Amino acid sequence: MASPVRGRAGGPGRRPLDRAKDQAITAAVVDVLARLGHSGFTMDEVALAAGVGKAAIYRRWSSKTDLLVSYTEGSIEGTLDLADTGSLRTDLVALLGSAAAHFNGPAGRANRALLSAVHDDPVLAAAYHAGPVAQWGDAFRQVFDRAVRRGEICPDAASSVAGEAGAAILVQRWLLHGAHIDEALVADVVDDVVLPLLRDRGHP
């Protein structure tokens, strides 16, 4: 699940914001985007789905854009599995498998709805690059850096397009086809695409 969207702090002389409401609003953002898409996303719908008054939302976010930017930046935070399993292959299966689980769920449908607006909205585009794109790139760097330290791949392989190629297949299935991404596909992408590309860059 996405991290709670970050609203404004309570501030001096103001009551602390209720974190339970933050969680409810985050879940509502996902629900509304997944059901109604970006074009149907309104503060009224979010308030209704969260079971809160609109005032509770506006105390945290000044506008719909502010709320969507906050959600977008944290939409995959905490969802990627970066466990050190001891080998590059199983690290990649864990990472891509966690991404697939996100794509397959309600948050994945919500993010697909957001992507329909990114190209026409520079503010949302900036949030998407600062959040999911940056976090995704950092996750692959961590996995590849560990593999370099273990001697599994060369340093220049870690900076190649291998990671992008593997992720691109999953994103294509998710974004263009709306297909469920199963464990078998994740394993095939790792074994038939990512690892061969890395090996083609040479061994240490």
Rank of each mutant, 00 (worst) to 15 (best):
M1W: 08
S3T: 11
P4A: 12
P4F: 12
G7E: 09
G10L: 06
G13Y: 09
P16W: 03
L17G: 14
L17H: 14
Q23M: 05
Q23K: 13
Q23R: 15
V32T: 11
L33C: 07
R35W: 00
R35Q: 13
S39I: 03
G40N: 03
G40F: 02
F41H: 11
F41W: 07
T42P: 07
T42D: 02
T42N: 05
M43K: 03
D44P: 00
D44G: 06
L48D: 14
G51N: 06
A55T: 14
A56S: 15
Y58H: 15
K64G: 11
S70F: 00
S75T: 12
I76S: 04
I76F: 07
E77A: 14
E77V: 04
G78V: 04
D81E: 05
L82K: 10
A83I: 02
T85W: 00
S87H: 02
T90M: 05
T90K: 07
T90H: 13
D91A: 08
D91E: 15
A94Q: 05
L96W: 11
G97R: 13
S98L: 09
S98E: 09
A99D: 04
A100V: 09
A101F: 01
A101K: 14
N104A: 08
G105E: 13
G105A: 15
G108T: 10
A113M: 03
S116F: 00
A117I: 02
V118H: 04
H119G: 12
V123R: 12
L124D: 06
A125R: 15
A127V: 06
G131T: 06
G131Q: 04
V133S: 11
G137L: 04
D138N: 06
D138A: 15
R141L: 06
Q142F: 00
R146A: 01
V148N: 04
R150T: 10
R150A: 09
R150H: 08
G151A: 07
I153M: 05
I153E: 01
D156W: 11
D156P: 00
D156R: 11
S160F: 03
S160H: 09
E164S: 13
I169N: 02
L170G: 13
L170T: 10
V171Y: 12
R173K: 12
R173T: 02
W174N: 04
H177A: 12
G178Y: 12
H180M: 08
E183V: 13
A184W: 00
A184Q: 12
V186Q: 08
D188L: 01
D188M: 01
D188G: 00
V189H: 08
D191N: 14
D191M: 01
D192T: 07
L198Q: 10
R199C: 01
R199A: 15
D200K: 08
D200Y: 05
H203Q: 13
H203K: 06
P204I: 05
P204C: 11
